[in-house]
């Protein structure tokens, strides 16, 4: 069979796989939350399942003047964007969609997240939701430019935008070793575009949930699940970019990709516990004055190394 057709068929299981990974992430986080509150770990493990059952049983709601179409697009879109991100990730030598510009595809998808989070905030026609939307945009202004430059570092290293090439270029040394700044900025951006941990102001409890304040039932479920899926997709994408893709001993490449992705998700979940929320207006200063030059230097260093070495290290 044509490899494109096989890829398309395999792509059917992709949403389910991603949903399972998201469920695992949610369960892991809930276990840690339960422990912090002195409850049993089992209660945490079943929490996402119970939450799903609860939300599926719950009534949906709307508000006077809500822009239902845009609101629902924002809600359903997160999960879709996450699936589209994973589409270009190589699992070993296999990839669902082998785009020559896979890296740009990923970037396009995280720009899509701007629109989705904002529509969620805007569509509800409610004060707190709108505030959540504002907050996300303010934060996005800080992370997006550094993220875009951070993404160019692996592309420079491999001399290609195709993810299989980027992965193969790390045969000698993983990019994370000589592009640590790019990786840190990338990881922080993943946490930020998932509205997670220290970058969760858009969905913050202080704003009664912000963009999710007015959601109930299946609409809320889609957003909460979508958020975990975006987080997982961001972690999975770091594997071909910085962690040598499917390279590793004994296990097949695809398994290594999954293992590395889940390990990164665990790091993100831990980060939530280590850092309080960074307020968007203070974040902007650091992002533009400190992080931007740092990333540019990182890209420059990578470029010089590639020229001197005649390729990746």
């Amino acid at each position: 069979m044509d490899s494109t057709v096989t890829g398309a068929l395999w792509a059917l299981i992709l949403p389910f796989g991603l949903a399972v990974a998201a469920l695992l992430a949610a369960a892991g986080n809930a276990v840690l939350d339960s422990r912090a509150r002195g409850l049993s770990a089992t209660a945490g493990m079943v929490a996402p399942v119970r939450e799903t059952a609860r939300l599926l049983r719950q009534q949906r709601r709307t508000l006077p003047g809500a822009d239902s179409l845009l609101w629902r697009i924002g809600g359903a879109g997160l999960a879709v964007a996450a699936v589209l991100k994973v589409l270009v990730i190589p699992f070993g030598n296999f990839t669902f969609a082998d785009l020559p510009t896979g890296l740009v595809w990923f970037n396009a998808m995280d720009v899509l997240l701007w629109a989705l989070w904002w529509l969620l905030g805007w569509g509800a026609n409610s004060g707190w939701s709108l505030v959540g939307g504002y907050r996300f945009l303010a934060q996005a202004l800080s992370y997006e430019l550094p993220l875009m430059f951070a993404l160019t570092a692996p592309a420079v290293g491999a001399g290609s935008l195709r993810l299989l090439d980027i992965q193969d270029a790390q045969d000698g040394l993983w990019f994370v070793v000589w592009m640590p700044a790019a990786f840190l900025v990338y990881a922080a951006s993943v946490v930020a575009f998932s509205s997670w941990g220290p970058f969760q102001t858009a969905t913050g409890r202080d704003a009664a949930g912000g963009v999710i304040a007015e959601l109930s039932g299946v609409d809320r479920l889609l957003v909460l699940a979508g958020r975990y899926m975006v987080l997982v997709a961001g972690a999975a994408f770091a594997v071909p970019l910085f962690f040598g893709g499917g390279s590793g001993p004994w296990l097949p490449g695809s398994v290594w990709v999954i293992v590395k992705s889940l390990a990164l998700v665990a790091v993100f979940i831990t980060a939530r516990r280590l850092f309080p929320t960074l307020r968007p207006e203070r974040l902007a200063e650091i992002a533009l004055v400190l992080v931007m030059p740092l990333v540019l230097i990182q890209v420059a260093v990578a470029a010089v190394i590639v020229v001197v070495n005649g390729g990746a290290l």
């Binding site: 009534q59 949906r60 709601r61 709307t62 508000l63 006077p64 003047g65 809500a66 004060g127 304040a213």
Partner: peptide
């Protein structure tokens, strides 16, 4: 255009009875 499948969770009868200022997080916020 409110999708009839979506139930409103607000009762206008109550809205008319008392004003939004007293309603906590209601949608008078907007």
């Amino acid at each position: 255009d409110t999708d009839p499948g979506h139930h409103s969770t607000q009762e206008p009868g109550h809205a008319a009875m008392h004003h939004g200022h007293d309603n906590g997080q209601d949608h008078a916020e907007m």
